[in-house]
Amino acid sequence: MEFSPDLRTQHLLHLADNALILGQRLSEWCGHGPVLEQDIAIINTALDQIGQARMLYQHAGKGMNPALDEDQLAFFRTENQFLNFTMLELPNGDWAQTLVRQFFFDTYNYLQYERLTESSDPALRAIAGKALKEIGYHAQFSAEWVIRMGDGTEESHKRAQDAVDRLWPYTGEFFESDGFSAEAAVRRAAPLPSDLQPHWEEKVDAVLVEAGLKKPVLQWFQTGGRKGQHTEHMGYILAELQFLPRLHPEAQW
């Protein structure tokens, strides 16, 4: 698909891709959760994420020329056209990796969406209004699990610390503030990501302290997602996500 979206569209696609790729990953837990109640809870988060992705794709697609629908955007773009954070495409790993990833991202996402409710883009503002409530629940859920695991058993503590260490290098990407993010901030459509960093660190530090987990000292971060450069895992996600509509491009489902 020929595809050269402007910066405004890239920003919306970035938000939508984050939601879709995370939702796609989380839905892998469906039927395999540690206990039925948690299976239901994690599916809820997945449902919310995919629901948000749909609203954002619809909004992004309407503004394009020619206009594209949510499924064209989700199923017919190639890997380099996806602008999600690389953290969100990593395999789920164990419950600790899934929930620590969720905690890092939810905390960021909540701060981001809080500001998106004041966006200069009215449609984005409306989407954010609905999404913020959901993200608030996600952030509470994941923070509680980080504390529970950090302060649970020796094994859960070890797994949670391992997840923190493993995922930390991917958090730097949240705060990169060039390209479409800078442009969105100028338009007052979205906050400048680097402005969110102090609040994010404050919240993350507080939860890690309560959980008895160590914050990594590492300050060398992975990058690429915002520019369409992904990990080795992304191709497999898209292969699974997209194969059926691509096999029957003329079909309605």
Binding site: L20, Q24, S27, E28, C30, G31, H32, L36, D39, I40, I43, N44, A46, L47, I50, G51, A53, R54, Y57, E70, D71, A74, F75, E240, L241, F243, L244, P245, H248, A251, W253
Partner: peptide, 24 residues
């Protein structure tokens, strides 16, 4: 659940995911 990851549209994906959640 075998088809959630491969559902052919986002609408179908959400509906299937919600359905399997109902079963839980």
């Amino acid at each position: 659940a075998n088809w959630i990851g491969r559902a052919p549209s986002l609408r179908r994906k959400v509906a299937l995911l919600a359905k399997v959640q109902d079963e839980a």
